[in-house]
């Protein structure tokens, strides 16, 4: 047999498989989307009707929604893999294991970004805050944040998938680890909205988030082989 398993072929296969399953079941997107919506309304009820005040709370509210919806999504995507243990069949194939992880990271990133696309405009409308001038920058920061969340949350979800109380354990492990990216995101958003004095502008926060994403992403891809061997 002259069959070969290409790295990009595996990434594409796992990615398309997960997207096909998600489009059919809509389970993870519905869970994350509903959670994002509920969170948006709950937070909106707690704020004043004054757009100027609301503008000050937008960074925290937006990133909190992303954080909680993100961890929910990461947990769901691996609960599906654990259900009939298809994940084991996947990692026992000759496919490069890091390619499988990379594909799962991209899936989780796409899910988080779809929630960002839903929640960000909703926050702006409900809180009556005009974000049009800063929208591109905020979306850029959210992309970096969602990436950081995916590169940390995905390998941890793999490790927690067969653990008891995985749904409780995962947030407890993920939240502290993504704190740097959360701080960068909230602070960067505040800088963009002109809420804080920042002589160096946005650059330090962006650089920090990029460094976090690269370090954790590359580290996870290298260590994944060990992570999946009991």
């Amino acid at each position: 047999m002259s069959d070969q398993t290409s790295y990009l072929g595996v990434v594409k296969a796992v990615l398309l498989k997960d997207l096909r399953i998600e489009l059919r079941s809509k389970e993870t997107l519905a869970t994350m989307g509903l959670f994002g919506l509920v969170m948006t309304f709950v937070l909106a009820f707690g704020f004043t009707a004054d757009p100027a005040t609301n503008r000050k709370v937008i960074p925290g509210a937006l990133w909190t929604a992303l954080l909680f919806a993100g961890v929910l999504g990461v947990g769901r995507t691996f609960a599906r893999e654990a259900k009939d243990d298809a994940f084991t069949a996947m990692i026992l194939s000759p496919a490069p294991r890091s390619a499988i992880l990379l594909a799962k990271m991209v899936v989780n990133l796409l899910l988080s970004l779809s929630i960002v696309a839903l929640v960000t405009p909703l926050f702006a409308v409900i809180l009556q805050v005009d974000l049009t001038g800063e929208l591109a920058g905020i979306l850029g920061l959210l992309f970096l944040g969602a990436t950081g969340f995916a590169v940390v949350g995905t390998p941890l979800a793999v490790m927690a998938v067969n653990a008891r109380f995985a749904e409780v354990l995962l947030p407890m492990v993920v939240f502290p680890m993504v704190t740097p990216v959360l701080i960068g995101g909230v602070s960067g958003t505040a800088v963009l909205l002109g809420l804080v004095f920042a002589p160096d502008g946005l650059a330090p926060w962006v650089q920090g988030m990029v460094a976090f994403d690269v370090a954790f992403g590359v580290g996870a891809l290298f260590l994944f082989e060990k992570m999946v061997t009991e």
């Binding site: 096909r20 399953i21 599906r80 009939d84 243990d85 298809a86 084991t88």
Partner: peptide
Amino acid sequence: IGYVGHRTMVYGEL
């Protein structure tokens, strides 16, 4: 190596 385990190891949605 082919492997058959305790569970079906396939995706129900596919």
